[in-house]
């Protein structure tokens, strides 16, 4: 995937030179290995900072909200679905955007690599399907498939669903994966065990709200956690407050989440809160046959009424 970089720089330069866009949103090398950071390029001479490799997991759609300029944006499968969601929700207009599609083979999970690596990681390079990690002790190699982010390894929308240009030929979609296997495993647990499972899952949460800030869906001017009159959720680290926060956050993403993994990636303590949003995704799929962000012309399941909507929970 790192071979995309040159094409990207060319594309960005062309778009900026032709004045088709005011800025281009992409990634540049971060100050630490495996931490590429989003960057906004406004001048053609600056495009050479753009890079692309397997560390571009942040969802760029997050940077579109309420912008008024003309924007060129690089979009992976999940980013493109979030862009569609933004268009549906009027957070950005389709005419403003030049979407440059990036077929994606998954992003690597830096936690997996940090856990495996011996000593401090000095540099991470990739060579096709192989990830080479350079530490003080020497060089280690990993197969990319083994260190993928969990959501990427079960991704079924790797190619952008909406684009004006493509950076490369579409990649093959995965068809033999079950994205909801982990949710199904939880559903199969008995009630007590489920409660204990989530107690355990959420207990490290420090309420930093990084998951909310990294999420492209979370753009409310005042988030419910910051409201104090009325206060819906306590601000403490009480187990119930934490649970309420995660529960409501997941609900705000119901029928909108594209499982891009930005929340989990941003979490400083590594909570897999995607299990909650994914459960809702699964319900949306099963009850309304809806997956978020696939087409800008379709209204979301939760704001449209159909005569055959399931209602067996109403007595």
């Amino acid at each position: 995937m790192s071979t995309y970089t040159d094409t990207m720089r060319e594309t960005a330069r062309r778009l900026l030179k032709e004045c088709r866009v005011d800025l281009v949103i992409g990634f540049r090398q971060g100050s630490q290995p495996m931490m590429n950071e989003p960057c906004l390029v406004r001048k053609p001479e600056d495009v050479d900072q753009l890079v692309w490799d397997s560390n571009c997991g942040i969802n760029l759609a997050n940077y579109l909200t309420n912008r008024k300029e003309k924007i060129g944006i690089f979009a992976k499968g999940c980013d493109s679905r979030n862009i569609v969601t933004h268009i549906i929700e009027n957070k950005v207009q389709r005419e403003q955007l030049v979407i440059v599609g990036v077929p994606c083979l998954g992003m690597i999970d830096k936690r997996k690599i940090t856990a495996e690596a011996q000593g401090e990681i000095l540099a991470v390079t990739e060579d096709g399907d192989q990830i080479n990690v350079k530490t003080a002790a020497g060089t280690q190699s990993f197969a990319k498939a083994d260190v993928l982010q969990q959501n990427c390894s079960v991704c079924t929308h790797r190619n952008p669903v909406i684009h004006d240009e493509m950076i490369a030929e579409p990649v093959a979609e995965q068809t033999d994966v079950d994205p909801y296997a982990d949710v199904a495993a939880i559903e199969a647990m008995p009630l007590e065990e489920r409660w204990a499972f989530f107690d355990d899952l959420l207990s490290p949460c420090i309420r930093c709200y990084a998951c909310r800030n990294a999420c492209p869906l979370c753009y409310c001017p005042t988030c419910f956690v910051d409201e104090s009159k009325p206060q819906w959720v306590g601000k403490s680290q009480d187990a119930m407050d934490i649970r309420t926060f995660h529960f409501l956050r997941a609900y705000h993403c119901a029928g909108r989440c594209t499982d891009c993994g930005a929340c989990e990636r941003a979490c400083p303590v590594g909570i897999n809160m995607r299990l909650l949003t994914k459960k809702l995704n699964k319900d949306c799929k099963e009850l309304y046959d809806w997956e978020a962000g696939l087409s800008p012309d379709k209204r979301p399941a939760l704001d449209s009424y159909q005569a055959n909507d399931p209602e067996n929970f109403i007595k």
């Binding site: 609900y251 459960k279 809702l280 319900d283 929970f313 109403i314 007595k315």
Partner: peptide, 20 residues
Amino acid sequence: MKNLLECMGVEPDRIHFSWI
């Protein structure tokens, strides 16, 4: 709503919906 509550381990009979 009910589904996720249940998934998190709340008894299904804690929450009811009806139409009257």
